[in-house]
Design a binder for these strands. Structure first.
Lengths: 194, 194
DNA sequence: GTCTATATAATGATAGAC
DNA sequence: GTCTATCATTATATAGAC
């Protein structure tokens, strides 16, 4: 493990940044408060001036990625100027790029030791929203293609599984980029609703 | 966490079974040797009559799922009596069912605290084999469809991402079954190579 | 808000009897 | 192979000075 202090940010933000990197590389239970403090450039007890317990750091780390995704996907879904097919394609591209670029934050929500902290209520709610978004767009795309909407549920399942797969993809293939993967998955999804 | 001892198996096998369940529900670092022993129905020091260190238990747990997958996929690929399309469809179905049924062992190989143990060489080799298998079959299927084989790499990427997605799918949707998901993903994949 | 010092508990692992 | 007893280390968290 690197013990080099992170350079940017101050105080609380620096702790969050350090904890994020460490949770992703070592897991939650596998990361000690000393690890976090060392990387944030402070002593271990100083963490407790910002957080009451270790789990509170995890809460804040998990709270980071929520907003951007939900808001943008909501905006995409309701853009009446575009066809459902176009909106579906853009949502896939957006999500894949979000999952590929930056730290693999989405992966944290799937870790056993994170789920064992029983803070998954909000994460699961997010997941339901995303699932619903894909269902709506797939249904719209199928209508545009003159296909029966009964297929929407199954195809949404496939699309969701595909997008989710990106999270694990990055772990084995760290070189993967949203730039290359996003158009690939978008085209694949559009083939399914054509 | 349930501390109820597992009932089946004896000695070493019972320990592996207990450790598997616990690693999946709490992660590796989040599971103590006392947890494992309690679930196996023995005392903590008794573990060390079977394993030298904790990481050796993890090694054995990870060694479990390797064989069946690799052997069956190899047999599927080389079955000359079937078309490439049929073989591709069967491989997808086989892998999805394998990933859906039984404990989610594949997920363990993606956990940060497991990868931090630096035992991923064999796991990554497996992954490369699977990737290669899909490339070969996708290429064959594209030939049969009269499409350019240059598309094979990209489509294999999509297929692999889709199959891998099943691993995370189970975590948020514990009710998902291979029976329902396998045909869905198979049909989706076959649509992509048609 | 950060520090040093420390309390308290849990951890992986060993020794040696049976 | 399992047990009891225990060690050495490391963990989270607190107390109190600056």
């Amino acid at each position: 493990m690197s013990t080099e202090p992170v350079r940017r940010g101050t105080g609380r933000a620096r702790i969050i940044e350090a904890a994020t990197e460490l949770f992703l590389s070592q897991g939650y239970a596998g990361t000690t408060t000393r690890d976090i403090a060392a990387r944030a450039g402070i002593r271990q007890p100083s963490l407790y001036a910002h957080f009451k317990v270790k789990a509170d750091i995890l809460l804040e780390v998990l709270a980071q990625p929520i907003r951007a995704s939900v808001e943008t996907s909501a905006a995409l879904i309701e853009d009446a100027g575009l066809s459902a097919v176009e909106r579906l394609g853009r949502l896939v591209e957006f999500d894949v790029k979000l999952l590929c670029d930056g730290p693999n934050l989405a992966h944290l929500g799937y870790l056993p030791d994170v789920r064992a902290e029983q803070i998954d209520a909000e994460l699961d709610a997010q997941h339901r929203d995303l699932r619903r978004a894909y269902e709506v767009l797939v249904e719209g795309a199928l209508k545009e293609a003159g296909r029966p909407v009964e297929d929407a549920r199954g195809i949404s399942d496939v699309v969701l599984t595909l997008v989710e797969g990106v999270i694990l993809r990055r772990i084995v293939d760290p070189g993967v980029t949203g730039e290359q993967l996003a158009p690939l998955l978008r085209d694949a999804v559009l083939t399914l609703v054509r």
